[in-house]
């Protein structure tokens, strides 16, 4: 096991979670490669013989850096009602396993993310849990997120919307 790599990426994921928790989305964009592919496929209930229950033909997010940047910019606009008053949210990232990539400047990591969001005085928390598969690339000495797939557990989301990122 490459301890330095494990620590580097774990720290990356924790710092990323903190930026997302604090609505620092512009700073979050700095962690992303311009070549990013970011996908959250729909999960369905399917019998085992049908194969995978992850549906990539329909997704919750299917993003490039440019489309994510646009989503982020919207959240800063005065009339993005979903972001103001801001909800309180946390990304709990755990089960982090890091593997070296095919070249020294890449690596991949799997982790589990639990996103909890509290809106207004609403009693129930919005809650989403999923498994991330990430790849990273070192760009000008810094690790950047190159791709992310999040397999959420819910086939029916119990969040009124996905204004947060997973």
């Amino acid at each position: 096991m490459n301890y330095e790599l494990q620590l580097d990426i774990t720290r990356f994921l924790y710092c990323e979670a903190q930026l997302l928790d604090h609505h620092q989305y512009l700073e979050w964009l700095d962690l992303l490669s311009k070549d990013l592919r970011y996908r959250v496929p729909v999960r369905v209930t399917r019998e085992r013989k049908e194969g995978s229950d992850v549906v990539y033909e329909m997704t919750y997010f299917d993003e490039t850096y440019a489309s994510l940047e646009r989503r982020v910019r919207r959240l800063y606009v005065k009339s993005a009602w979903v972001a103001d008053p801001p909800p309180r949210q946390h990304h709990l990232v755990t089960n982090i396993l890091v593997e070296p990539g095919d070249t020294p400047d890449t690596c991949r990591a799997s982790s589990v993310v639990l996103v909890l969001r509290s809106r207004g005085s609403v009693e129930e928390l919005d809650r989403i849990v999923g498994e991330r598969e990430d790849t990273f690339r070192r760009e000008e000495g810094q690790w950047k997120l190159l791709s992310r797939d999040v397999r959420v557990d819910e086939a029916v989301l119990h969040a009124i919307n996905l204004s947060m990122f997973l």
Binding site: E63, R71, A159, N161
Partner: peptide, 23 residues
């Protein structure tokens, strides 16, 4: 399809504000 996901899917920029209002 990507345009749909980005606008009227659950993460869609239009959908987000609609659901906030209904709530």
């Amino acid at each position: 399809y990507r345009a749909y996901v980005g606008s009227f899917g659950p993460s869609g920029t239009l959908e987000q504000d609609d659901t906030e209002m209904w709530s």
